Simulated assay, not measured.
Amino acid sequence: MINDNGTLTENTSIIDSNNRGFNYGDMVFETMRCSIGKPLFWEDHYFRLMASMRILRMEIPMNFTMEFLEAQLVATLQANNLENQTARVKLAVFRNTGGLYTPKDNGVGFVIQASPLDEPFYLFRDEAYEVELFKDYYLAPGLLSTLKTNNRALNVVGSVFAKENNFHNCLLLNTNKNVVEALNGNVFLVNGNTIKTPPLADGCLKGIMRKQVMDLITSSKDYELEEASISPFELQKADELFITNVIGGIQPVSQYRKKVFAHKVAKDLFQKLNVKIRLTS
């Protein structure tokens, strides 16, 4: 079942050929992990969605309150019999049909999809996980690159490259040749007790799990957070490297080229993350 502007329907072909998200990428979305009928970090997702819509000059409907959209998410979970398990939910907001590059109006519609996840909790995966730089194309540093839109050609081509070359993931560079993020998440680099992650100005996604991990680091006496550009040359000098996203949590990287990484800090932060989730659920 899909939630089409508040109407639950079994029709999975609700997007017509004139949809602006389909034609021009005129769409923002939030992918959430839901546990027993409740979206994790919902407040952060909601405010990121509202900020993204403002940046793209979409008109925010008066009924797009946090309570209204959460109720729509829950209704979609219930319609798919997923209210008592862990699920992946995607909330997509697109501008109304009409116009070419210039829209006829700035009103919006939304679609919500839900699917089950195998693991009920975040799992710490310390098996082999090798990454490589993807250097065929580059991200542009700037505000638009930080948004969750469906302009994801770079991520798709990079994912094909990773699959063809037997890598688990790839790291993306911006036009300044700095490491920005992974194909499906934010990047953190560990040296001693300093944990470094690229700033939003470099073009990395304003990730929800990125925010949770940064909060954990700044609230801990054991670590120091540094938001600064990461050169590719720093990767092989790092003690650890890990990737974050809201579906998988924290994924430690085991190898980049000839460098093999530890995962002690990643595991510690993973444990702190699960404690935080239990305390706020």
Rank of each mutant, 00 (worst) to 15 (best):
L189R: 00
T102S: 12
N96E: 12
V179S: 09
E127W: 03
F110K: 01
G99R: 07
R95W: 07
N166T: 04
Y138I: 05
V111A: 05
K148F: 09
P116E: 00
N178P: 01
L189T: 04
P103E: 08
A114Q: 07
E130I: 10
K90R: 15
L147V: 00
A92H: 08
F94D: 10
V180W: 02
V156Q: 08
H168N: 15
T146G: 04
S145H: 02
F124Y: 07
G192M: 06
L143I: 15
L171Y: 04
G142L: 12
L91T: 11
V160N: 11
Y122K: 02
F134Y: 15
S115A: 14
N155G: 14
N174M: 09
F121K: 03
V93Q: 10
G192W: 02
D136R: 14
K177D: 12
T146S: 06
F167T: 03
T146E: 01
N96Q: 11
K163F: 08
D118I: 07
S145R: 01
T146P: 03
A162C: 07
V179R: 03
S115R: 06
F167I: 01
L183H: 01
A162P: 05
G98P: 10
T102H: 07
R152K: 12
L139N: 08
F121Q: 06
T97D: 06
L123T: 04
D136E: 15
A92K: 07
N178Y: 12
G99F: 08
F121A: 09
G109R: 05
N176G: 09
L173E: 04
E164I: 03
N191M: 13
P116F: 08
L100P: 00
F110R: 03
K163L: 13
E119L: 12
D118E: 12
Y129H: 13
S115E: 15
G185C: 11
C170M: 15
A153R: 06
F134H: 10
N174V: 12
N165H: 14
E127K: 05
V108G: 07
T97Q: 06
R125Q: 08
D105N: 15
D105L: 11
P120C: 03
F188R: 01
R95H: 09
V108L: 04
S145A: 15
K163H: 13
